[in-house]
Structure formats: C-alpha cells, structure tokens
C-alpha cells in the first residue's frame, strides 16, 4: 500500500491538520508520502518532511497553485495520486473543497470525514449529524478519503523525509482568486485548542462576547459559537461549531447560553469534559454536560473570570 497525504498549509507553514492526517495514513499502513502544492511553499515542505513516518515529500511549487484553487490543484493531485492506493486529506474546508473534485477526476467515490480506520478498505464515519456511525468498505482501486482531524492524534515531528520537486503545472483561467478576509486572532486555533469556550444566542449580542473573552484569556482558550450566534452576527462565520461548522474535541468545552441542538452537539460532543452554563435547567445541553451550572450567564461569567 502507498498513501499520498495532501498537505494543508499557507505556503509559509504547515497546518497541524496535516499531521493528524498522517496519523490516519499510518493506521492504514504502508508507505506514506506528502504532496505540498503551493507557491513559495518551501518552508511548508520542510516542515512536512519532519512528520514522523513519512518517506517522501513531493513539492509542486508553482504560481498556478498559489491560492490552492481546486481547479488547478485537483488535476495535479489526480495525476500524482494515480500511483497510490490511497489519497488522504483533512476534512477541513480546504480538503472538502478539493478531494471530491480529485475523486471525480479519478472516477472513484470519496469517503468523507472518517473517524476510524478498520482496515485498508474499511472506515467508520459519522452520518446524520453524528447520530449514527456507518462502517463502509470500498473496492475502488484508489481510495479517496477525508479525515476528521479530532479523531486522530498529531504525528510526531521527528521524521526526516526526502524532499523532491514535481514540475507538473496546470494552466486554468476559469477560476480566479479575488481576495481573502482572514480573521486574525491571538488565540489558539479553534480546532486544535485544548480549551474552547463557546457562546450562543443567550449572549444576546456581539459586545457581550467580551465576557467570554475574559474567561478565555485566563484559560488560554479558543472561542467558538453556535449557529444562532453566528447568524445573528455576534461573531464571524468561522466561529461556528457543529455539524455544518467546525468539529472540535478539546480537553474542556464550555458551552454558554447554548441550548444543545443536535447540530451543535455534532461538533463538540467528543470533547473530553463538557461544561454547560444555561439558565434553563431543561436545556438539552445538560444531557451531554459533565458539569452543568444552571445560572444566568451574565452573573456566572464574571464570577468565573474572578475565580480562575
């Protein structure tokens, strides 16, 4: 078996999601290579070469891959991936955008968002917002798979893979990059943080998120939100935790003013310890909380900040 892992990076550095994906690849077994497609991405490639257990890093460094547009990267991955039994990427927005396009070019199905490797062709994945776990087997000659990063630990960074370049280019002009608005934050990244504190509709407005931030500062936590809080414009889109937002599994997840709809639970119920602060003692979030505090959040949050 030979597995190609598609690196997630921003040219200058490797995203840790790549390391989680390498661990999933190792669970399948066989040789693991990483493909880094980008522009001026040498630093990311050097980092990728340190991922434990990786044999080779293939670098396609060309202006045509600068913004990772799938119209350019998918044909590259399909070309390089032809020589492998598996192609894996993280189930992030980048991986989700790219991999089905790769699978279709190779005329194979894709298995999305796996949480467990049962064998080289058999994987477990959540369906129905995590209310069911499907074990699926594929007989496709190349298995295209995306990986839920929270289900696999990060690979160690003590490897020394060889780095080789790939000169393949893809000329396309049908899709053009216009711009990017990235949220800047000093806080840890939501999906990789060990503590996450999320606010819901109960926060009432964006300004009140300052109450969460003060607690987050004390805990070194990332801040998340329910869909209702995002839809209402309290916080940016990329704060959304849930079935259709980000999946998180920190050591500690604190849900504040969140009722606990199934779509929200789908994104956080694998957290190690869950705390819920809600004034409604019947709120469904308490059914998954290890520690529930029935209280008004406007009273509880300042107290919590004080006590930490």
């Amino acid at each position: 078996m030979s597995i190609l892992v598609i690196a997630e990076h921003d040219n200058g550095s490797l995203k840790t999601a790549t390391l989680n994906t390498v661990t999933a690849a190792a669970a399948i077994g066989g040789d693991v290579d990483i493909l880094v497609a980008g522009y001026g991405c040498d630093a990311a490639a050097q980092e990728a070469a340190k991922a434990a257990g990786v044999g080779k890093v293939i670098v396609a460094d060309n202006a045509c891959y600068e913004h990772q547009l799938p119209e350019a990267v998918a044909p590259l991955v399909a070309e390089v991936g032809k020589g492998y039994t598996h192609i894996l990427a993280a189930a992030t927005t980048t991986g989700k955008n790219l991999m089905p396009r790769v699978a279709a070019l190779l005329d194979v199905d894709q298995i999305s968002d796996i949480i467990e490797v049962k064998g080289e062709d058999t994987f477990v994945r959540p369906i129905y917002a995590g209310n069911a776990m499907a074990t699926v087997q594929t007989s496709d000659p190349i298995k295209v798979v995306t990986v839920r990063t929270t289900a696999f630990a990060e690979a160690a960074k003590d490897g020394s893979a060889t780095v080789e370049s790939n000169a393949h280019t893809v000329e396309q002009s049908k899709a053009q990059f216009v711009g990017e608005q990235l949220s800047k934050s000093e806080r840890p990244e939501l999906t990789a943080a060990s503590v996450v504190i999320s606010g819901g509709r109960g926060m009432q407005n964006g300004e009140n998120f300052a109450l969460l931030e003060k607690v987050a500062d004390k805990l070194g936590a990332a801040i998340g939100a329910s869909r209702a809080a995002v839809d209402a414009g309290f916080v940016p889109n990329d704060y959304q935790v849930g079935q259709t937002g980000k999946i998180v599994a920190p050591d500690l997840y604190i849900a504040v003013g969140i009722s606990g709809a199934i779509q929200h639970l789908a994104g956080m119920k694998d957290s190690k310890v869950i705390v819920a602060i809600n004034k409604d003692e019947e709120a469904p979030i308490f059914q998954v909380a290890d520690y529930g505090l029935v209280a008004d959040l406007f009273k509880a949050l300042p107290e919590l900040e004080e006590a930490l």
Binding site: T92, T93, T94, A175, Q176, E180, Q181, L182, T191, D238
Partner: peptide
C-alpha cells in the same frame, strides 16, 4: 466560508 474566514473567487 472557509476555516480561517472568507475567500472570494471569480468564476
């Protein structure tokens, strides 16, 4: 909507 914020493309 992308993980880090938003991206705009012209197609």
């Amino acid at each position: 909507e992308i993980d880090g914020g938003e991206q705009t493309v012209m197609l």
